[in-house]
Design a protein around this nucleic acid. Structure first.
Lengths: 203, 203
DNA sequence: TGACGATGTTACCGATCGGTACGTATGATT
DNA sequence: AATCATACGTACCGATCGGTAACATCGTCA
């Protein structure tokens, strides 16, 4: 089975691991879709800036919509990595874990050019329920909500569902407010408000 | 001076007040831009569904972007009407005024097909700082934030700026969450969380 | 070496985008 | 009746949209 594949993957450990066209497209789509929005970016711009051409895109992705969905799957993976990063630095302390993410988010959200959450933005861009990107986003947000309920329970909330909802509203509000205000936006108060909410929700 | 103008405006009090092409375009643009998004709607669809043609649009509006900005100005006017509606039913009680709006919003936000705030959505659709619609939105949000600080002061908040930021984050979070979740979304907890936040912020 | 599958290219498709040149109907004024 | 500005429609523009057919090139294995 080791000889079944070409040699390239074998020496991927070497420094010669060249990026495939599909991967270049994928990473360029990720960057452009996030920064400019999915509707704003044409496939031609993606492939040209990736140094390839359109057929290379359509060999690996069924359509632009599917590429957008793929971008969101990548985005989601990165989100969870960031979100769960606090679990290592604050083991067994869900409150500290959550606030660690909130702190990082508040910092990013007041920086100029902040673009919020790619998954949330995609849903705003595509109101209809048909788009594949929408399903990725909605599934993710349900997962996030469930995770917040877990953490609220672990924090000893009187009403975990309500606290989780409140935290989620603050999160989404921060994502979008970061795009509405240049600096000194309401995101600067995120951590203080979240702490206040958690404190008055836990016994 | 009564003979200076044509007779039509004079009998506007009568039932024959016909809508101008510009007004039909304006109202159709408002509906379509809000429900489907600005980028998703072409000018052809607007004018055809308004029963007019494109030149009629460009006679009254310099460009699609300007029409979008006009739509947002209309949207903002309606927003303030809704937002300040509580001032009449609860005079001198900023807390009740605010919560009245929150209650109405929470109700709308969990209804299927909810599309959030048109002003917020426009900023997500146009990340670049060049679009005229963006300026309308950003100006409005700054005004809203200032109004929330006023009301927070009137409620006797220990830190009016922080409370206002928290309330704004909850608002924006509700606008966008309403699009992310079908029903039973986090917006259902909006009023409870807002009350909790206000209670723990006022002396 | 010869065949093959994967990957790349050039050149093109119909549809739709935002926007406009130009002719026409209307309706009040002189 | 002649006039003239306003308001509207027909028909079209070049550009760009997402997507594809057909051909060239490469590395791999029989």
């Amino acid at each position: 089975m080791s000889t079944k594949r070409p040699v390239k993957p074998a020496d991927a450990a070497a420094a010669s691991a060249k990026p495939r066209a599909a991967e270049r497209i994928r990473s360029m789509a990720r960057e452009l879709f996030y920064r400019e929005g999915i509707r704003a970016i044409g496939v031609e711009e993606i492939v040209s800036r990736a140094g390839v051409t359109k057929p290379s895109l359509y060999r690996s992705y069924a359509s632009k919509d599917e590429l957008a969905a793929e971008y969101l799957r990548d985005y989601e993976a990165e989100f969870w990595k960031r979100f769960e990063a606090g679990a290592e630095t604050h083991p067994g302390d869900p409150r500290a874990q959550l606030l660690a993410y909130f702190r990082g988010l508040a910092e990013r959200a007041v920086r100029p050019g902040y673009r919020g959450c790619g998954l949330t933005n995609a849903v705003v861009e595509y109101p209809g329920n048909e788009h594949p990107a929408r399903k990725v986003s909605q599934t993710h947000k349900r997962k996030l909500r469930a995770r917040l309920v877990e953490m609220s329970e672990a924090m000893g909330a009187k009403s975990p569902a309500t606290l989780a909802d409140g935290l989620l509203l603050l999160l989404e509000g921060t994502y979008v407010s970061g795009q509405l205000f240049d600096r000194d936006g309401p995101a600067r108060s995120l951590v203080a408000v979240a702490e206040q909410l958690i404190n008055s929700s836990t016994r």
